[in-house]
Simulated scan of single mutants.
Amino acid sequence: MVDDATTDDEGQQQGVYLVEGGSFERDQSYIDDRITADGSSGWPVEAGRYRLVVARACPWANRAIIVRRLLGLEDALSMGICGPTHDADSWTFDLDPGEVDPVLGIPRLKDAFEARFPGYPRGITVPAMVDIPSGGVVTNDFRQITVDMSTQWTAFHRDGAPELYPEALRDEIDDVARKVFEDVNNGVYRCGFAGSQEAYDEAYDALFARLDWLEERLATQRYLVGDTITEADVRLFTTLARFDPVYQVHFKCNRNKLTEMPVLWAYARDLFQTPGFGDTIDFLHIKQHYFLVHTDLNPSGVLPKGPDLSGWLTPHGREELGGRPFGDGTPPGPPVEGEVVPAAHSAG
Rank of each mutant, 00 (worst) to 15 (best):
S40V: 15
S40I: 13
S41K: 04
S41D: 00
S41H: 04
G42E: 12
W43Q: 05
W43H: 12
W43T: 07
P44V: 06
P44D: 05
P44S: 09
P44H: 12
P44C: 00
P44W: 09
V45G: 06
V45A: 02
V45L: 08
V45E: 05
V45W: 02
A47Y: 03
G48E: 04
G48R: 00
G48W: 01
G48K: 02
R49I: 14
R49Q: 14
R49T: 14
R49S: 14
Y50H: 05
Y50K: 04
Y50A: 03
R51A: 11
L52Y: 00
L52A: 06
L52W: 05
L52D: 02
V53F: 08
V53Y: 03
V53H: 08
V53W: 06
V53L: 10
V53I: 15
V53N: 03
V54T: 08
V54C: 04
V54D: 01
A55C: 07
A55T: 14
A55H: 08
R56L: 08
R56S: 05
R56Q: 06
A57R: 14
A57K: 10
A57V: 14
A57M: 14
A57H: 13
C58P: 09
C58L: 10
P59E: 02
P59T: 00
W60G: 00
W60Y: 10
A61V: 03
A61T: 08
N62P: 09
R63C: 06
A64T: 15
A64D: 08
A64R: 09
I65L: 09
I65W: 04
I66W: 07
I66S: 09
V67T: 13
V67R: 06
V67H: 07
V67M: 09
R68W: 06
R68F: 02
R69T: 12
R69N: 12
L70V: 14
L70Q: 10
L70A: 13
L70M: 12
L70T: 11
L70W: 11
L70G: 14
L70S: 10
L71M: 11
L71F: 07
L71D: 01
L71N: 06
G72F: 13
D75W: 11
D75R: 15
D75F: 13
A76T: 14
L77I: 08
L77E: 06
L77S: 07
L77K: 04
S78Q: 15
S78N: 12
M79A: 07
M79Q: 14
G80W: 04
I81W: 13
I81S: 10
I81Q: 14
I81M: 14
C82R: 06
C82I: 11
C82F: 07
G83P: 05
G83L: 12
G83W: 06
G83T: 13
